[in-house]
Amino acid sequence: MAADAGGTGLEGQTRLSFVHRKLVDRGARFGLVNGGLIAVDFGDEAADEEIARQMGLADLSPLARTGFKGAGSVEWLASQGVAIGAESNRGYRQAGGEVALRLTPSEVLLVDSLLAEGRFIARLDGAWSWGEEKPRRPIGYPVPRADSHFWFALSGLHAVEMFSKICGVDLRAHRFAEGAIAQTSVARMSGIILRHDFAETPGFYLLADSASGDYLWECLLDAMMEFGGRPVGLTALQMLEGY
């Protein structure tokens, strides 16, 4: 990970997280990833990791992600080497730690791994084209998931209980196992929840309307207050996952 890039300045990067200023206000230290700034920690990596084990909120919005939908999209992705199972509302981990979230029989959202290399996503984005064949083979269409949705991670022993204050789906491990997806309402907003444990630590990815990132960030911090929850950076999650 690149070192602290400092302050609010863009330093040549043009991509900003949807909650960038919230992170700055909390004292985040930033690193360069995927053409943008990501919060790597909040001043103390060890403290971050401990918080992440209990109740942490991380913004992963600058990390790479993409989506494809429409008839033929799943088959096309499979032909590109993406492992996707038959069930919808299920996330499928890839060899490199990326995840393919099958949202419907013909819609897939793909997110990068916490190593943040971005190659897997970039390769897929680069592989899609209109093509010259006539008639065109149905291979689905790209969806701009990197900008339509923010991406947060929730980690820790209290994550399920925190969610139960703002979401009506039973997310407990024995009812909502690794890889399960709920497309549901979170604090009165449509959101996608994926159970993504960080090794032994319970965890979730939450993706929702990027224009509402500020709002939902505050809702989540409010809900996790009673558990001593607070923001953590990418490094803490990488440490949990054992990278």
Partner: peptide
């Protein structure tokens, strides 16, 4: 309960 009033901000909001 808590007041949940979703808001949407553009990228240039600030």
């Amino acid at each position: 309960g808590r007041i949940f009033e979703p808001e949407r901000h553009t990228a240039m909001h600030h």
